[in-house]
C-alpha cells in the first residue's frame, strides 16, 4: 500500500512539476555558465562602482577644501614680531586686507589631523618644529595674491602663501575624470553582460527551436514565448549577480580598510566588538548601490532576453 501511495505521489509530482517548463529552458539556458559569467561581470561592476563612489568622495573632499582658497604657513609661529608673535602679526595683516573674508589659524589638533597620514597619530610628540597654518577664506575676487605675499614676507620673513585654486581645479578635474572612467567601465560591463545574455538566449533559441515552433503553432503569442525566456534569463542573471556582489563584498571591505587612515578613521576594528565599525567602513552609497547590482543584472537579463527572442520570433509567421 505504501509503495502504491508513493507511486501515486511521484506520478502526481511529475504531472505538474513546479514552474511548468514547456520550452525546456532549464536545460537550454543552463544554470552554470551564464550565472558565472554574470557573477564575474558583477564583480567588475562592484569595483567600478567603488571607484565611482571613491572619486565622488574625493571630489567632494577637495571641493570642501577649496572653500579655504588660501593657506598661509608661518614658520616659528611663536617667535617675536611687531605687536606680538609672528602668528599674530600674520593674522593681523590678513584680517586687515580687503578681499579676505576670514583668516583662522588651525588648532594643534587640526594640524595633527592633517599630518596624521604622514606622521601618524602621535605627530605632536615628535617635537618637530611645525609651522602655524592659517586658513584664509576669500571674498569676491580676493586680494592681489602676489602683493599680499610680498607684504607678509616683509613683515614676517619665511611666511609662505599657497593658493589652492589651481590645484583644486586640477584635482577636481582628475576626480571628475576618474568618475567618468568608472562610469564608463560600468556601462561597458553592463553592455558585456547584455551581450552574454543575448548570446546565451540565442543559443537557447537554437536549442529549443522545435519546441518554440510547437507552442507557436498552438497559439502562443510572442509575449508568451519571450516571457518564458526572459523569466529564466532574469533568474539566472539575478542569482549570478548576487553571487558576484557577495564575492566582491570582502574585497571592498578590505579596500575600505586600507583607505580608512586617509579618511580619518581608525581602520577595521576586530570582531566581535567592532563588527559594525567593520561594516561601516564601506561608504553608505556603496551599501545602497551593491544590492542594486543584482537588480540591475536581472533587469538587463529580462530586457535582453525579451528583445532577442521577440526579434527572433519575427521570422515565424
Amino acid at each position: 500500500m505504501a509503495e502504491l501511495a508513493e507511486l501515486r505521489d511521484r506520478r502526481s509530482a511529475r504531472l505538474r512539476p513546479g514552474g511548468f517548463d514547456d520550452l525546456g529552458l532549464r536545460r537550454a539556458l543552463g544554470d552554470r555558465l551564464l550565472p558565472l559569467l554574470v557573477a564575474a561581470m558583477t564583480f567588475l561592476a562592484a569595483l567600478a562602482l567603488t571607484g565611482f563612489v571613491a572619486a565622488a568622495a574625493l571630489a567632494r573632499h577637495w571641493r570642501e577644501g577649496a572653500e579655504s582658497a588660501l593657506t598661509v604657513q608661518v614658520p616659528q609661529p611663536g617667535g617675536p614680531a611687531d605687536q606680538g608673535t609672528r602668528r599674530e602679526r600674520v593674522l593681523a595683516i590678513l584680517r586687515g586686507t580687503p578681499g579676505i573674508a576670514q583668516a583662522r589659524a588651525l588648532s594643534d589638533e587640526a594640524l595633527s589631523d592633517l599630518l596624521r597620514p604622514w606622521l601618524g597619530s602621535e605627530a605632536q610628540s615628535l617635537a618637530l618644529p611645525l609651522p602655524a597654518v592659517v586658513e584664509v577664506h576669500l571674498s569676491g575676487d580676493g586680494p592681489d595674491l602676489r602683493a599680499l605675499a610680498q607684504r607678509l614676507t616683509q613683515a614676517v620673513p619665511g611666511t609662505l602663501v599657497e593658493s589652492h585654486g589651481v590645484w583644486v581645479a586640477r584635482l577636481s578635474t582628475l576626480a571628475r575624470s576618474l568618475q567618468a572612467c568608472a562610469g564608463l567601465a560600468l556601462l561597458v560591463v553592463a553592455a558585456v553582460a547584455a551581450s552574454v545574455v543575448a548570446v546565451a538566449t540565442r543559443a537557447g533559441l537554437a536549442a529549443r527551436r522545435e519546441a518554440i515552433g510547437i507552442v507557436h503553432s498552438l497559439g502562443a503569442t510572442d509575449g508568451y514565448i519571450a516571457g518564458r525566456f526572459a523569466r529564466r534569463a532574469t533568474l539566472l542573471a539575478f542569482l549570478g549577480s548576487a553571487l558576484g556582489a557577495l564575492t566582491a563584498l570582502p574585497v571592498l571591505l578590505g579596500l575600505a580598510d586600507l583607505a580608512a587612515p586617509f579618511a580619518g578613521l581608525q581602520g577595521i576594528a576586530e570582531p566581535p566588538n567592532g563588527v559594525w565599525a567593520w561594516l561601516a567602513a564601506l561608504p553608505l552609497p556603496l551599501w545602497l548601490a551593491l544590492p542594486g547590482l543584482p537588480l540591475a543584472a536581472g533587469a538587463i537579463g529580462w530586457l535582453t532576453a525579451q528583445a532577442t527572442v521577440r526579434r527572433w520570433l519575427r521570422r515565424l509567421s
Partner: peptide, 28 residues
C-alpha cells in the same frame, strides 16, 4: 501578425510527426 495567435487557438492540429514535447509528460 499579432492577431494570428488568437486564431491559431481556435484551430486544432494533428501533425504527421506528432510534434510532441519530449521533455513533458503526456498530461503536460
Amino acid at each position: 501578425r499579432r492577431a494570428l495567435p488568437g486564431l491559431r487557438r481556435r484551430i486544432g492540429v494533428v501533425f504527421q510527426d506528432f510534434r510532441l514535447l519530449a521533455h513533458l509528460s503526456a498530461f503536460d
